[in-house]
């Protein structure tokens, strides 16, 4: 599918209908998932109603990692096959991933206030997510600091891949660090501890976040491609 969509014309045709469909899918899943998560799912026997923050927090965490992995794949394609559509995909995914990481951090902080009694706890997972968030910022900053777009794309791709290799090391080191300092560990979501009645809304919300990402990515890539076309048309007009 990647190679099929690699042709920009085919991508534009595909994204013209795929974008709205992804957004519609996200809307439907949110319409189901939000009431399910906030009203119809059970409260936690320990944390009470506050556990519902999980339905935003955990999907945001999953997909901010997932988007980074996607960017890593796109960067590799862009570097090896010099494919400009892959560069555009990585570039356009980054702000979405950074936003998801930010949502994860903020919701984690909001969740921490009632459960830990503090707005921020140096919990292993939250700390790893903070590092990921800063890596996202560095990636975006590097891209915007370099004027030549093609060079910016290649350099940012190298940074993205270096980050991809580093993320497991960062994760390991932060886990090691958090066992050393034994913080209040609260997030057991994603492990076996989760109740099946919570799994349904969680997966629905995760699906909604995914389609939100996919839809936003389509629109953002289309915008980038249109902008590039306008620029080169202007350039041609100025040369003629």
């Amino acid at each position: 599918m990647f190679s099929y969509l690699a042709n920009p014309a085919r991508f534009m045709a595909f994204s013209a209908w795929a974008g709205p469909i992804f957004m519609a899918a996200a809307a439907v899943l949110f319409a189901v998932g939000i009431p399910w998560a906030l009203i119809y799912s059970p409260a936690d026997y320990q944390q009470g109603e506050t556990v519902r923050i999980m339905y935003v927090h955990v999907p945001a965490a999953w997909w901010s990692l997932g988007i980074y992995a996607f960017m890593g794949g796109a960067s590799l394609v862009g570097l090896v096959w010099r494919h400009s559509l892959a560069d555009v995909a990585a570039r356009c995914a980054a702000p979405i991933g950074a936003t998801f990481a930010g949502v994860c951090l903020i919701s984690g902080s909001l969740w921490g206030a009632p459960t830990w009694g503090t707005w921020w706890e140096w919990d292993g997972r939250l700390t790893s997510m903070l590092v990921l968030f800063i890596i996202y910022l560095g990636y975006l900053a590097l891209w915007s600091a370099i004027e030549d777009e093609e060079r910016a794309a290649r350099l940012a791709a190298i940074l993205c891949l270096v980050g991809l290799i580093n993320l497991p090391i960062v994760k390991f080191s932060v886990d090691w660090w958090s066992t050393l300092h034994q913080p209040a560990s609260l997030f057991r979501a994603g492990g076996s501890a989760i109740d099946p009645s919570m799994l349904g809304p969680l997966l629905t919300m995760a699906g909604a976040f995914f389609f939100l990402f996919a839809g936003l990515l389509m629109f953002s890539m289309r915008t980038a491609i249109f902008r590039r076309r306008v620029e080169s048309a202007r350039l041609r007009a100025s040369q003629a």
């Binding site: 890596i135 560095g138 900053a141 940074l159 270096v162 980050g163 960062v170 390991f172 932060v174 660090w177």
Partner: peptide, 17 residues
């Protein structure tokens, strides 16, 4: 400043250990 932003998150593992 850009170097700092890029490099500092990767300093995390050596700093921790």
């Amino acid at each position: 400043v850009l170097i700092a932003l890029i490099v500092l998150p990767f300093f995390a593992p050596p700093i921790i250990f």
